[in-house]
């Protein structure tokens, strides 16, 4: 019964959200916690509407989304070719793998002071942080997918007389796609996390800046609005990404074959 299943799928998150808001309101009423520490859901809603009406929220969202998009695309543009080169050139892999592994252990936000020194306090530093955060999930996802490529499919290419490069492009990379897609989804989530961190310092716009500014002004309601907007945008971008993958490559099961239909 697909209609009933679809209804459940839509209703369950809604019920959870309503229950969460009810528990939130009830918790404030029962504990009498200060509104400065935890504003009520209605206060948060009011702050959110205020930000929407003034156009402030849209501006911050636009700035953050653009930074995320550029950082994410840059990371993909770097990670995919490097993973392909690693698959083809063992010597290059031997040289580059240790420094990349080293860099992978360092949290992107730990690089922020250096990036500010090297790239300044403008957009380049923020995009740089996001690129660093997104790079490794895409890179490792692709590399893992390449390693798991079915040897039997490669033999099909060998019998067809394909060159090693053609086998990589026409068989190995498409075969690695499911793993690459997992990496891309993780990267998108990591990008949102890193974005807020990047915007907390030396920033004049963006959701991270909005949260930081609200904290300085003791506007906890706006802080919560910021958190909710980031979470919602993260969910929405992941949903849109999954839909795009399902439409473009229907054979890639992005949800274990459940939500990709």
């Amino acid at each position: 019964m697909p209609t009933r299943v679809a209804w459940h799928r839509a209703a369950v998150p809604l019920i959870v959200a309503v229950a969460f808001i009810a528990a939130w309101s009830l918790g404030i009423a029962l504990t009498g916690v200060s509104r400065a520490l935890l504003p009520s859901p209605t206060a948060v809603l009011g702050a959110g509407l205020e930000l929407v009406e003034g156009g402030e929220l849209a501006r911050h969202v636009r700035v953050s989304a653009l930074r995320l998009l550029i950082g994410f695309l840059l990371s993909v543009a770097l990670a995919l070719p490097i993973a392909m080169l690693f698959a083809r050139l063992r010597g290059l892999r031997a040289v580059l793998e240790p420094p990349l592994e080293f860099l992978r252990q360092v949290p992107p936000l730990a690089m922020m002071p250096l990036l500010i020194l090297w790239l300044g306090i403008g957009e380049a530093q923020k995009v740089g942080i996001i690129t660093l955060a997104c790079f490794f999930p895409v890179f490792l996802g692709t590399l893992g997918g390449i390693a798991q490529c079915d040897r039997r499919l490669i033999e099909v290419g060998q019998v067809a007389g394909l060159s090693k490069g053609a086998i990589l492009c026409r068989i190995v990379m498409p075969s690695a796609l499911p793993s690459t897609v997992v990496g891309l989804r993780i990267a998108l989530g990591q990008g949102w996390r890193a974005l807020v961190g990047a915007e907390l310092v030396a920033s004049s716009a963006g959701l991270g800046y909005m949260i930081e500014d609200a904290q300085n002004l003791a506007r906890t309601d706006i802080v919560i609005v910021g958190v909710l907007v980031i979470g919602t945008l993260g969910l929405a971008s992941d949903w849109a990404f999954r839909r795009a993958i399902a439409a473009t490559w229907p054979w890639v099961k992005v949800d274990g074959g459940d939500g990709d239909a």
Binding site: R152, E155, V156, V159, A160, I171, P174, W251
Partner: peptide
């Protein structure tokens, strides 16, 4: 050898089709 292979067709035990 590679040039020769272009005229060879191989049907494997499993169809080995590219799923994409």
């Amino acid at each position: 050898a590679a040039a020769e292979r272009t005229r060879v067709g191989y049907v494997f035990q499993e169809p080995r089709l590219m799923p994409w």
